[in-house]
Design a protein around this nucleic acid. Structure first.
Length: 879
RNA sequence: GGGCGGAUAGCUCAGUUGGGAGAGCACAGCCCUUACAAGGCUGGGGUCGCAGGUUCGAGCCCUGCUCCGCCCACCA
């Protein structure tokens, strides 16, 4: 790629992410690598982004979610799929409205002061001001979305989709209006869906009130004013005689009349077994009231204050009323007793205000029939939820689903496409704006409410692709291939998309759903601005580099984890890894003088090169297997281990010998070849995780193609797994490690070159002879391979399998240390022998265990017995 | 009241068909060996929450229990 912005500067020994990140993203975007081919013969692969709040800022959840999506989409793109990662943002109804209301409040204004149009203008303005932020933050993360297709839930096309679906569902009688008891937030002044109500444990009082001959307990004495009945269980003999009767009961406002009904909703074992029925202010009571035709008395208003129907309490706050009415009843002797009580109250998910159940007329979707299809889609495998554990949660929610209240008393959102005739009261639902009544031509006014934000996001997988038009994008990319999201919005979003996608498109919205963890702070607390424990991914990117953040995110995505704590040491490790990769590449790049790929390919690879190729093949295979099953953390760990331990710690050290000694040009060439090809493949394998650094290095290496982004993703090849090479390398590495261990434990000064005699047998003799120079350079020990060797005096013993190593130590160290070391080794051998013998001594083991397991155990014991003998014998040498 | 997840090294966490437990960080020793001290080599450290069961063999499978955490739910 000849890009003028890319100037290969002298390579620093520290990886500096900032410049590299700034360099490549614009290049990728400019070359159109993020865009799918249209049309294309390639197989499609698509992901729709969980749309972030348009006015929001990137948080750790986004960083995780989008890193995982980008890993998959980059991998699929490299794998030759026609990929689309569809981006966009959400208008986030209530969340955004609250922010703008707060801005107004700072000016001392309420939204009603400026009116709906002006308010909406302010929201749009706020959207324009802040709307670009999250997108540029996603770009900074490296997200390879097709930004030319960016959508917003309130843009024209998506709004058309929203109206179209609303009208269709209304025609099918799946959307309807109903007077029902709803969750009302007196602060936000809107109705909330069941999902938007959270439960909070609160300490309160359980007040036993006398109702004439009966006594009952309640936590909401203030709703007594709205009582229109009492209820007992049908089989409760204690109260049988009262059922059907209307009681006259002395109360705070004189005498009231309440009917006693029998209803199975009452738990006879709880409290006194009698409940007061307040259909206007309790969901259960509302249902009981419907069943028994009890009237509704609304005593608490939408403002959370008592209504005129509350008599002397009218205008008072509902919680003050609770205290006051208890005092008043106490004065009248109507309180039997009061007990402390702890229970869960419903609160608004946004402002934590206690929700007031109120009866009002709202729009609903009858989701029950849609839910059935959504369950079937998972059951039949058309939608695959990963990890499987979430399937049960999904089923449970779907199977117990209740009508979805979709109207909200907000201004910011999709206005409900319903018009009311002011003359004949008829209701009309339409995809186009109405100006007069279709029936009587009378004047109409549009429903002032807007739709639940999740209604439009529920259409996201097809609305973003152009529906209701029959676009090529829709045809190509629907159903989408994968959805990646956190478990917190399974119900809010995943479930709604499943239902609406299946209903409207007659096909699933996505094939795979990968549900990932939620990120918490180092103490396991949920991150929140009020707690001040928010870790900002942008800060982390600046501090550690984007690739390091991404690698860390991948490491967090393990299948069994629910919540994960973010601690900075993991980021440090990732940053160090990037630096390691950078420096390994520097070593390779600075030793390419005279490199000729064609000539190098003709040189037969040596053992180490074969071993490296074999390990790479295994790594490719493991990484692919992990990614295919969404085991991101396994993939990341596999790559980390390969690059650090095998490539850097072993092979680069081995390669130095050939690289720095020009005596054998063919070997130098072959080594260069192994380094270049392995590093190049490794970079491609690593690219989806760490896109920036891999591109930067790749461009400096000999490579084919314009960008690593569109280079092929490595394929595992059985041909390259070289078991013989791995076996033989294990012998060489074992000898090196054994000598190093002696060096380390004997405190041999690093400058000293040791003399080692290696007593090997069979094929190992030739093998070790051939690699003696390698051992010498890696372990700093001049090796003599001698099958007939005898133990020289004053030497330390190392044993690797059947091979013995004698390291001469005379005059170097005090041999008492060697004695200690040997004794420790003997203890270890003893333990292993004892364990193995005990195992083999049990007849059941020999008879029942598979033959290969038994044989292995036998070999292990024999080997350790031999080892022990050698160790004991060598103790004598030490003296 | 249902359902789910976790409990493994000092800390944070892996552990995919059951064969004597791993990583990163931290710790100890020795090294600024010309890719990298954000590094290298070597080493110490775990009754895998508790109790049973299945099995020749259990971190892994079954049962019960104890502590955390989460989700759902119309017992007021």
């Amino acid at each position: 790629m000849n890009d003028p912005s890319h100037d290969p500067a002298p390579i620093s020994d520290r990886y500096e992410p900032a410049a590299v990140e700034a360099r490549w993203y614009p290049v990728w975007e400019k070359h159109g690598y993020f865009r799918p081919e249209m049309p294309s013969k390639k197989k499609p692969f698509s992901i729709v982004i969980p749309p972030p709040n348009v006015t929001g800022s990137l948080h750790m959840g986004h960083a995780l979610d989008n890193t995982l999506q980008d890993i998959v989409i980059r991998m699929k793109r490299m794998d030759g799929f026609n990929t689309l990662w569809q981006p966009g943002t959400d208008h986030a109804g209530i969340a955004t409205q609250v922010v703008v209301e707060r801005q107004l409040a700072a000016e001392g204004k309420l939204k009603d002061d400026i009116g709906r149009d002006e308010f909406l203008y302010r929201v749009w303005q706020w959207k324009e001001e802040s709307g670009g932020a999250i997108i540029s933050q996603l770009k900074r993360l490296g997200a390879s979305c097709d930004w030319s297709r960016e959508r917003f839930t309130m843009d024209e096309g998506l709004s058309r989709a929203v109206r179209e679906v609303f009208v269709r569902l209304h025609k099918q009688k799946l959307i309807y209006r109903d007077d029902y008891i709803v969750n009302w937030c007196p602060r936000c002044q809107t109705v909330l869906s069941d999902l938007e109500v959270e439960r909070e444990e609160r300490d309160t009082e359980f007040v036993y009130i006398k109702y004439g001959p009966l006594t009952l307990g309640t936590v909401r004495p203030e709703t007594k004013l709205g009582d229109t009945g009492l209820a007992v269980h049908p089989k409760d003999k204690r109260y049988k005689k009262y059922v059907g009767k209307t009681l006259e009961i002395p109360s705070v406002d004189g005498t009231i009349r309440v009917k006693v009904v029998a209803d199975a909703a009452v738990d006879p074992k709880f409290g006194t077994g009698v409940i007061k029925v307040t259909p206007g202010h309790d969901p259960t009571d509302f249902e009981i009231g419907r069943r028994h035709k009890l009237p509704i008395r609304t005593v608490i208003g939408f403002d959370g204050k008592m209504t005129a129907a509350a008599g002397t309490y009218a205008g008072m706050d509902r919680f003050e009323t609770r205290k006051k009415i208890v005092e008043d009843m106490q004065a009248l002797g109507l309180i039997d007793r009061i007990e402390p009580y702890r229970h869960a109250v419903g609160v608004c998910y946004r402002c934590k205000t206690v929700v007031e159940p109120l009866v009002s007329k709202q729009w609903y979707v009858n989701v029950k029939p849609l839910a059935r299809k959504a369950v079937a889609a998972v059951r039949t495998g058309k939608i695959r939820i990963i990890p499987r554990g979430w399937v049960k949660t999904y089923y449970h929610w779907m199977n117990n689903i209740r009508p979805w209240c979709i109207s909200r008393q907000l201004w910011w959102g999709h206005r409900i496409p319903a018009w009311y005739c002011e003359r004949d009261d008829s209701v009309h639902v339409s995809t186009t704006d109405l100006t007069k009544c279709p029936k009587c031509k009378g004047p109409v006014r549009q429903d002032p409410d807007v739709l639940d934000t999740w209604f439009s996001s529920g259409l996201w997988p097809f609305s973003t692709l152009g529906w209701p038009d029959k676009t090529p994008e829709l045809k190509t990319f629907y159903p989408t291939s994968l959805l990646v999201t956190g478990y917190d919005i399974i119900f809010f979003w995943v479930a709604r998309m499943a239902m609406l996608g299946l209903h409207v498109m007659r096909d699933v919205p996505f094939r795979d759903v990968y549900i990932h963890t939620l990120i918490r702070d180092p103490e396991g607390q949920k991150m929140s601005k009020t707690k001040g424990n928010v870790v900002d991914p942008l800060v982390l990117m600046s501090k550690y580099g984007t690739d390091a953040v991404r690698l860390t995110m991948a490491g967090l995505a393990a299948p069994t984890v629910r919540d994960v704590r973010i601690a900075e040491d993991r980021l440090e490790a990732s940053r160090n890894f990037a630096n390691k990769l950078w420096n390994a590449s520097r070593l390779v790049l600075s030793n390419l003088e005279g490199y000729d790929a064609a000539a190098a390919a003709r040189v037969k690879p040596d053992l180490a090169a074969r071993w490296l190729a074999s390990r790479l093949a295994a790594t490719v295979s493991d990484v692919r297997a992990a990614l295919d099953t969404y085991r991101f953390s396994d993939a990341a760990a596999t790559l980390y281990q390969f690059v650090w331990s095998e490539l850097c710690d072993w092979y680069l050290e081995i390669a130095k010998v050939a690289l720095y000694q020009t005596a054998d040009p063919a070997r130098r060439l072959a080594t260069q070849h192994a380094l270049v090809t392995t590093l190049e493949s490794t970079l491609r394998l690593l690219h989806p995780f760490m896109p920036f650094i891999t591109e930067e290095i790749w461009q400096r290496l000999p490579h084919e193609g314009d960008s690593i982004m569109i280079a092929p993703y490595p394929r595992a090849s059985r041909r390259l797994v070289d078991r013989a090479a791995e076996r033989e390398m294990a012998v060489v590495m074992g000898v090196v490690t054994a000598i190093r261990a002696i060096r380390g434990e004997m405190r041999v000064p690093p400058g000293v070159t040791l003399a080692a005699t290696v007593k090997a047998a069979g094929a190992h003799v030739a093998l070790l002879r051939a690699h003696a120079p390698l051992v010498e350079s890696l372990a700093r020990a001049a090796c003599t391979i001698d099958p007939q060797a005898t133990r020289p005096p004053s030497s330390a013993l190392g044993v690797v399998g059947a091979t013995e190593i004698y390291v001469g130590l005379e005059g170097i160290v005090d041999l008492a240390a060697e004695r200690q070391r040997l004794e420790k080794e003997i203890r270890r051998a003893d333990e292993t022998i004892a364990f193995g013998r005990a195992k083999l001594a049990r007849p059941e083991f020999a008879e029942r265990a598979p033959a290969d397991i038994v044989e292995k155990e036998r070999e292990k014991v024999a080997a350790h017995e031999a080892l022990r003998d050698k160790l004991v014998a060598s103790l004598a040498w030490v003296g």
